[in-house]
Computed example of a mutant assay.
Amino acid sequence: MRYRITHTTHYHYSQPVGLCQNEARLHPRDFWRQECQSSHFDINPRPSDFIERVDFFGNHVTYFAVQQAHTELTVTCMSEVIVFPKQTHLGINLCSWESVQALLRHIPLQAQMQSQQGQIQQQSINPDKTLELLDAQQYVLDSPMVVTSAELRHYAQSSFLPNRPLVDVVQDLMQRIFTDFTYDPSFTTIATPLSAVLSHKRGVCQDFAHLAIACLRSYGIAARYISGYIETITEPGQQRLVGADASHAWFAVYIPDMGWLEFDPTNNTLPHEQHITLAWGRDYSDVTPLKGIAFGGGQHTLSVSVDVLRLPFVYERRLRPR
């Protein structure tokens, strides 16, 4: 599938802002399931500084600053992305969750030291596999917005049956979250703790992704947060509403010999052609689409519009320098 994504954020301030500094993660990622063919920003007022970089997790980051006084700020990012279909045969990997937990806990110390020094040469240790495991380990730990607890571990317990394949564990957990929780945009904010989401069984996609990640990490399983978009399918006979699509969130779990497998608990599905990935990290705080600081401004209002438009599929793979 080929998509054009238009993500517009508009701020209106009651008083002039003299200076604002911002950081955006709105440039879609390139990886095995997706290729970003183009991405560019339209910012008004025009920024005085505009710098692009790649962060620790491999996400594209755009920094910009506006130094002229303004009462409105509009940030639009327009991207064209190709999402490739791939059939995932979940039944192939029968690795139990206990074996994956043990693998992540007991990476040989010698391999860790050699990896840190860039000297993995032992024939008995696969360098790529060791680096992959070391990378996965960071997603087992608590993070700013995902803190494990006895309550979360208790909720996840019925999915973690003894010797159950990890893929089956995660599928069961995803389905339970989809069934047990109500999608309610009015209930939570970015600051709502997971304990409240678990207690009231309500939230949005961000909450459900955080909840699943916390449940998995409470059992020593590596899980990471993914931000992006999902195409909205228009009902037959109805006109497509421009800007009606929204940002979305889901999660991925590390499966040995399979890599990172994605799950969408909000829709009880495995992401494929309709899920477009922006960024991934430990939780939402690592992948916030747009954040910053403003000096002045008084009170402000914020509006966000996202449009995901499916385009005719015409693909020419880009040649990358070796």
Rank of each mutant, 00 (worst) to 15 (best):
R153D: 04
H40F: 03
V287D: 03
E231Y: 11
T301D: 14
G259Y: 04
Q206W: 03
G259I: 07
V242P: 10
A136H: 11
D207M: 04
T71H: 03
L302G: 01
S143K: 14
W32Y: 15
W97V: 07
K201E: 05
Q87A: 11
L90C: 08
A246W: 03
P265Q: 06
R25T: 00
Y139Q: 12
T76A: 03
V81L: 07
G58L: 09
R105F: 01
Q123P: 00
L94I: 08
L309Q: 08
Q299M: 08
T130Q: 10
Y229G: 13
L109I: 04
D135P: 08
F313V: 05
L103T: 12
S48D: 07
Q21G: 13
S149R: 05
Q137K: 13
F84A: 08
L133Y: 00
F41V: 12
A222T: 11
R282M: 09
K291H: 02
M1E: 15
R2G: 14
W97H: 10
R4S: 08
C20G: 15
Y315G: 05
K291W: 07
R46I: 09
L94K: 15
S285T: 12
L94E: 05
V170H: 03
D172Y: 09
Y183K: 05
L173Q: 02
R202T: 05
A279V: 08
Q238T: 13
V304I: 15
H272R: 14
I221Y: 00
L290E: 09
S158N: 10
S303P: 04
H60W: 09
T189I: 01
M145D: 13
R322P: 01
Y139F: 15
Q34R: 09
L319G: 02
Q121M: 07
K291R: 07
Q68F: 01
T179D: 10
E316Y: 12
D172S: 12
T189L: 12
I177S: 02
P271Q: 11
Q119H: 02
F178T: 02
Y225G: 10
L133A: 02
D245H: 10
H10A: 12
W280E: 03
P45S: 01
E231W: 06
C205H: 06
R33I: 06
D128G: 11
I230D: 05
I233S: 13
N44E: 02
I276D: 00
Q175H: 07
A209L: 07
Y139R: 13
H12Y: 04
L241C: 14
H272L: 14
C215M: 15
W97P: 14
I92C: 00
V61D: 07
Q138E: 07
A191P: 07
D55C: 03
G58N: 00
Q119S: 12
T179C: 10
Q15A: 15
N126W: 02
I226E: 01
A111Y: 14
W280V: 10
Q68Y: 06
A196I: 04
T179Q: 15
Q116G: 01
F41G: 05
L278V: 00
T288M: 15
G292D: 06
H154D: 09
W97I: 12
Q21E: 15
R4Y: 08
E52Q: 10
D184S: 11
A279H: 00
A294E: 04
I230V: 15
F295T: 08
G228W: 06
W250M: 12
G259V: 06
A136G: 11
G298F: 10
